[in-house]
Design a protein around this nucleic acid. Structure first.
Length: 781
DNA sequence: GAGACCGTTATTTTT
DNA sequence: TAACGGTCTC
């Protein structure tokens, strides 16, 4: 590959970023400025031009999906280049067979070796090598088959400690907030003891105690939570020079995407690896070594997860040369936006200007004005959803080249998806929901994974308890309690009791037989774990445990659905085996625990995407809807009173807007279903008021009616009357109307006359029969 | 030991 | 409103 081949496809700043070789570099990259391109090309350039071995590159992405796409793009770059050198023609001109062969060669020689993934998956991978070398302050230890507890595992563990072990009121010590406090402590690098010193009051002491017991329990289960996955490598680097030196030497070039959303622990992870533990301000051994971070403070939206954008703001003083913008050699700004139309960018820029916490930066348009932005005021969530559907229909009708994959609907909270789903089903529009209930969170999937976790890691008592009587095999509470009791008395994992026939016969009474049989099933697969593929283990366990049989017997629709999901799990395992070198059960389980729903979002899928604003980070869509722009929702009421949180909500709104490529629709409902059934009036989001009015078109007539409605409830009648008195004019086919609920329509039929007149009106795809004397409606032009 | 029923309680965002 | 958890009963 001629180096210039792909460098010519970059603008000056992007090119600088790609050609940067050694030392620290911060790329301040606005939304849609081609940062992914810069990252992928830089990785390719390091390998191709500087002869860096792929294995020595560590690239951190925000999602697994982003990692996969980046690998894919790098693979394509190399395949393209090799097609030209080997066959003398472009990749696309090769036969299918040649293409596949080339791709798999590139995979084998290059992309397979890259360390590319999220902090969590990369750290999990490091820990599978080295966790046996780690020991914490209370001498707790783990081994490489550790389980990964997800947030719900972690929370139920906390709950169990609070209510069962400490006999405290879980209303006063709400498991979620206690778990949050523990997570907070972990990300600040505090042990239970240090936490107690920092928070010496009663509540602090209790939380510290829970935290200590929580770690005991994790260790007893040979399990880690999401925070530990990153914290423990950092602690290990701190306590073990050789381990640190090994990984420091291994990762010569470190790249981090979405750097504004890293937290302290993640920062420390990067810092240790980059400088071998030295203070970055004095570290100067940058030979064949770089730290390259990309981010945008305006898109920092994860502070609830301890993300801290000041880490990005500090980069220049920390790793960089600390010089002002015009002189620095360790920072590049990417400001040209290649994604969105000018109207959209202008609106985004104006909105974000209201924030105080930022680096000044303006998105510069490159793509022309585009369509106007439309803000729709709906009457209810339902009607808002109908607006979205009818717009989608209208746009697809007019633009047959657009498929449904071009559309996305974004909202603040997952629960907002419901009315949208109902409307989409009603309109017969295909959709996919990203997030909400993850595939791996479904009961049957969690059960299946629990079986697998017990096989891989018998110490995992949480999983063991989940499945010991699932499906029902006659092992009840009394039996389990007596087994558990023995396990804690003897200080050994529950599994060791269960797997010992003598103990079971002594303790389990009537249920002994069932327990022994259960133990045999698990034991059998444990013995075979080395010889079988992950897929064989999954299929084996579902069969021998009686799980599928039980579901088949039920024969309900729900059971069928679960069977189907289990089938999907098997294909996921098969897919995993195909995609990965390391096909052991442990590796699959780590992957499953860290998989997110986003990973299933596929390009070219013929369906509208529904997701939260958070999930939409890093994505783009030609036509974008943002719904529920109301005070209390966006900005969320939990953030409305705190200026800094409010700025984060504004960034969230900014992230949403900047996902749009061609067209942007904003909407809100004036009446919303509230917490328990009651409906309540809403106030439009303050962010709408911050957008330049001349760029945003609204259904203004409705707004006027609405405003007068609100001024006084009494006037409501007169509004209707006024509307009616407006309708004395005659109607004919072809008239254009503006209807309060359905928007603009076209009169297609006129029935009757005088008082009894009614009109057939086409609003987008739906046709309604409406009496203009009753329904407030205005004739246009 | 299993299932029914009733009361309570929750809604921010996610690797 | 809906889902979950705990209790009570068979």
């Amino acid at each position: 590959m001629q180096t210039t081949d792909f460098l010519t496809q970059l603008n000056l700043s992007q090119r600088q970023a790609v050609e940067h070789f050694c030392g620290p570099m911060l790329v301040v990259a606005g939304a849609g400025s081609g940062k992914t391109r810069a990252l992928t090309y830089r990785v390719a350039h390091l390998i191709r031009h500087h002869r860096v071995h792929p294995e020595n590159i560590l690239a951190v992405t925000f999602t697994n999906k982003a990692a996969r796409e980046m690998k894919d793009r790098i693979e394509r770059l190399f395949a393209q280049q090799q097609a030209e050198t080997k066959y003398g023609k472009p990749f696309s001109a090769l036969t299918q067979e040649e293409q596949t062969r080339l791709r798999s060669q590139v995979y084998k020689n290059i992309t397979k070796h890259l360390w590319m993934g999220t902090f969590h998956s990369l750290c999990a991978r490091i820990l599978r090598f080295d966790i046996n070398k780690y020991q914490d302050e209370k001498k707790r230890r783990w081994d490489k088959n550790f389980s990964i507890f997800d947030e719900s595992d972690a929370q139920s563990l906390v709950k169990q400690i609070v209510t069962k072990q400490l006999n405290l009121d879980d209303k006063k010590f709400n498991p979620r907030s206690v778990r949050y406090a523990i997570g907070n402590a972990k990300n600040k690098g505090m042990s239970p003891l240090e936490y107690q010193r920092a928070e010496p009051d009663y509540r602090g002491r209790v939380i510290a105690e829970v935290y200590g017991i929580y770690q005991d329990n994790l260790a007893a289960n040979n399990a880690l939570d999401f925070d530990d996955l990153i914290r423990i490598p950092v602690e290990l680097f701190r306590q073990n020079e050789q381990v640190l030196a090994y990984w420091h030497q291994h990762f010569n070039h470190i790249l981090v995407d979405e750097y504004q959303d890293t937290n302290r622990t993640q920062y420390n992870f990067i810092r240790y690896l980059a400088t071998n533990g030295e203070d970055p301000r004095y570290f100067n051994n940058w030979k064949n070594r770089s730290v390259f971070v990309v981010g945008d403070v305006d898109q920092s939206i994860y502070s609830f997860r301890m993300a801290d954008y000041t880490i990005l703001l500090e980069f220049q003083n920390d790793f960089g040369d600390g010089l002002p913008d015009e002189d620095t050699r360790t920072m590049i700004k990417l400001e040209e936006n290649y994604r969105s139309r000018e109207n959209i960018l202008e609106v985004a820029n104006k909105l974000i200007e209201n924030n105080t916490q930022r680096i000044d930066k303006v998105l510069k348009p490159t793509r022309g004005l585009g369509e106007e932005i439309y803000c729709y005021e709906a009457e209810s969530e339902r009607e808002e959803a109908e607006f979205v559907c009818s717009k989608i229909q209208e746009i697809t009708d007019q633009n047959p080249e657009l498929d449904l994959g071009s559309f996305a609907v974004l909202y603040r909270t997952n629960s907002q998806s419901r009315p949208l789903e109902e409307a989409l089903i009603h309109y017969d529009i295909k959709y996919v929901i990203i997030g909400g209930l993850r595939f791996y969170d479904r009961k049957e999937i969690k059960d299946a994974l629990a079986y697998l976790r017990v096989i891989a890691n018998p110490a995992d008592t949480v999983s063991l308890l989940r499945i010991i009587n699932t499906p029902r095999r006659g092992i009840g509470k009394t039996t389990i309690d007596s087994l558990l009791n023995a396990s804690s008395q003897m200080g050994i994992p529950l599994w060791e009791i269960i797997n010992d026939k003598a103990s079971v016969n002594a303790l389990a009474g009537r249920s002994s037989k069932a327990v022994n049989k259960f133990a045999e099933i698990i034991q059998h697969l444990q013995d075979e774990v080395e010889n079988l593929t992950a897929l064989e283990i999954v299929e084996g366990i579902l069969e021998t445990s009686g799980y599928t049989e039980d579901l088949k017997k039920q024969g309900t629709e729900e059971a069928d659905n679960r069977l189907e999901n289990l089938g999907e799990l098997c294909s996921a395992v098969a897919q995993f085996q195909e995609d990965n070198e390391d096909t052991t059960l442990g590796s699959f389980l780590a992957n499953a625990s860290l998989a997110s729903d986003l990973d299933n979002l596929q390009d070219g899928q013929e369906a509208v995407s529904l997701m939260t604003l958070h999930s939409a980070k890093g994505l783009e869509f030609p036509v974008l809807f943002m719904v529920g722009l109301e005070q209390g929702l966006l900005p969320h009421f939990r953030s409305i009173d705190d200026p800094l949180s409010l700025e984060e909500e504004r960034r969230l709104c900014y992230v949403g807007i900047t996902r749009a490529q061609e067209q942007l629709f904003l909407s809100y409902a004036t009446e919303r279903r509230q917490l328990w059934g009651a409906r309540d009036a809403t106030i439009p989001s303050q962010f709408l008021g911050e957008l330049p009015a001349d760029l945003v078109n609204t259904n203004a007539m409705k707004k006027a009616i609405y405003r007068s409605k609100r001024q006084s409830k009494k006037t409501q009648n007169s509004v209707v009357k006024k509307a009616v008195s407006n309708q004395t004019e005659s109607w004919q086919i072809g008239d254009k109307v503006m209807h309060e609920n359905f928007g603009v329509g076209l009169v297609t039929n006129v029935f009757g006359e005088g008082k009894k007149i009614s009109l057939g009106i086409k609003f987008g795809k739906m046709t309604k029969i409406i009496n203009p004397k009753i329904e407030p409606m205005e004739k246009l032009n």
